[in-house]
Design a protein around this nucleic acid. Structure first.
Lengths: 189, 189
DNA sequence: ACCAATGGAAACTGATCGGTTTTCATCTCG
DNA sequence: CGAGATGAAAACCGATCAGTTTCCATTGGT
């Protein structure tokens, strides 16, 4: 059995916010969120200070799944190169699934514009963790310029995710050779 | 002297739409657009069928400046490699300017979600032209896989532009070596 | 069985949304 | 000078926005 049997109001709101803002954008109304969650507006505003805070909490709550869906398990014995490639294999996999709209954290930051918005701050933090993973693996691998490689990888991640999300590319045959090229040049084998 | 001396209502609306939707997102209200353009809503709806059409027309009208600000002049005698690098030099330059928010066409597509929205169609077309430029240069250069290279370049373009637009990276020391690596591996010298 | 806490449904606030219409001042042209 | 066209300002429309409040049915504890 899982630890969460029946979701409470708070969890249902977070889940509805995650789903609807990803599908329709952060401009989605609170009435729609409440209806989808089966929770009254009164309860929403007892649990969260504002729609903005609900949005931020929803992003933060989804960070675990985001990481779990992309990163390899810690200390799985594979090489840094394999562990980095794992992330992009997962991305390509997710990009092929129906309903994929690109990285939600990038989308939120682009939609909100204001970088000081609570949800934008959360999104930035979560994405920084991904960059940190890349840099850690790059350093562990003894790459010539680990920081450059990490920046290149997150750049490819966001570019690929965004382009797949808007249906401009399906990433097939694109992401693997591109990342491999960057890893090769950085000296990762 | 330039060909346009004083902008008419239509041009002022297109300009205001370009500026405000880039700064604040496509959710900007028509009242704000009209006020910024100094044009009444009545006139707006005589000139455009809807806000969506105004937005689409505004993007289309800005395509010329977008191309002029990025692409090198046709037949400037430089090599494909130099001409491709020119685009990314321009991008890095623009990314350093105040008010830079990333590629407006990518942002519009991400914000709208609906790929059949008239403005989303226009944005897609304009970005396809950039990919076409990359592919043409790649073919002209005799690259091993011109199509792959073009997709890699537009991926880097969107990724770099998006990340600079949200303030996640300033591209300094990132974009040039990354593109150079891709060009090297593709056999462009 | 009773009382109090819970929370959903819905009414409500004031603001804003996209879009339409009216009014009135200004301009051009005969 | 006078008639017609123009277009900005602003009222107006129904819908929706974020957020608050009221009302009432359900619930759990005693």
């Amino acid at each position: 059995m899982t630890t969460e049997a029946k979701p409470n109001s708070r969890e249902r709101l977070l889940e509805a916010a995650a789903m609807l803002t990803y599908r329709d954008g952060v401009g989605i109304g609170v009435d729609a969120l409440c209806k989808a969650a089966g929770v009254s507006k009164k309860s929403l505003y007892q649990l969260f200070a504002s729609k903005d805070e609900l949005l931020a909490a929803s992003l933060k709550e989804g960070a675990g799944a985001f990481v779990a869906g992309l990163l390899p398990p810690a200390n799985d014995g594979r090489s840094p190169r394999e562990r980095i490639l794992h992330v992009f294999e997962q991305l390509e996999l997710q990009a092929g699934a129906p309903g994929f709209q690109g990285c939600r954290y990038l989308a939120v930051q682009i939609e909100l514009k204001d970088q000081r918005h609570p949800a934008s701050r959360v999104a930035r933090r979560i994405k920084r963790n991904l960059t940190t993973f890349f840099r850690a693996e790059a350093e562990r691998s003894g790459a010539g310029d680990p920081d450059l490689l990490a920046r290149q990888l997150i750049l490819v991640f966001d570019g690929a995710s965004a382009r797949a999300g808007i249906g401009a590319d399906n990433l097939k045959g694109l992401i693997a050779p591109t990342v491999a090229t960057l890893l090769d040049v950085a000296g990762l084998r």
